[in-house]
Computed example of a mutant assay.
Amino acid sequence: MPATVLTARALLLDMDGTLVNSDAVVERCWRRWALRNGLDPEAALKVVHGRQGYATMAVLLPDRPMEQNHADNRVMLAEETADTAGVVPIGGADVFMEAIAALPHALVTSADRALAQVRMTAAGLRMPELQVTAESVGASKPDPEGFLKGAAGLGFEPADCIVFEDSEAGIAAGRAAGMRVVGVGPRAAALSPDAHVEDLTQIRVEAAADGSVLLHISAR
Rank of each mutant, 00 (worst) to 15 (best):
M1N: 14
M1I: 01
A3T: 10
T7Y: 13
L11D: 09
L11Y: 04
L13C: 09
D14I: 01
M15G: 07
D16L: 11
S22V: 13
D23Y: 06
D23S: 13
V26H: 14
W30P: 08
L35V: 15
R36W: 09
A43I: 01
V47M: 10
V47R: 10
V47G: 06
V47N: 08
V48A: 02
G53C: 08
G53P: 03
A55D: 12
M57R: 06
A58D: 01
A58S: 06
V59H: 06
P62I: 03
P62N: 12
P62K: 02
D63S: 07
D63K: 05
D63T: 14
R64S: 02
R64C: 01
M66Y: 11
M66R: 13
Q68N: 14
N69T: 09
A71S: 15
A71R: 07
N73G: 11
E80L: 04
E80I: 11
E80C: 00
D83T: 07
P89T: 03
I90V: 15
I90D: 00
A93M: 12
A93G: 08
D94I: 12
F96N: 08
E98I: 03
E98C: 09
A102F: 03
H105T: 07
L107I: 04
A111T: 06
R113Y: 11
V118A: 14
V118R: 04
A122S: 11
A122P: 04
A123T: 02
G124E: 14
R126Y: 00
M127G: 00
E129A: 12
E129I: 07
V132L: 09
S136Y: 12
V137N: 08
G138T: 14
S140V: 00
P142N: 10
F147C: 06
F147P: 05
K149W: 02
G153Q: 09
L154M: 04
G155W: 09
G155R: 02
F156H: 06
P158W: 06
A159E: 12
A159W: 14
C161M: 07
I162P: 02
E165Y: 04
E168N: 11
G170Y: 11
G170N: 10
I171T: 03
A172L: 12
A173N: 11
R175M: 04
A177T: 12
G178F: 07
G178E: 12
M179D: 08
M179R: 00
M179N: 10
R180P: 05
V182G: 13
V182K: 01
G183C: 13
P186C: 06
R187W: 03
A190G: 11
L191A: 08
L191V: 02
H196N: 03
L200Y: 11
I203Y: 12
V205N: 01
E206Q: 10
V213W: 11
V213M: 10
I217A: 13
I217C: 12
S218W: 15
R220T: 02
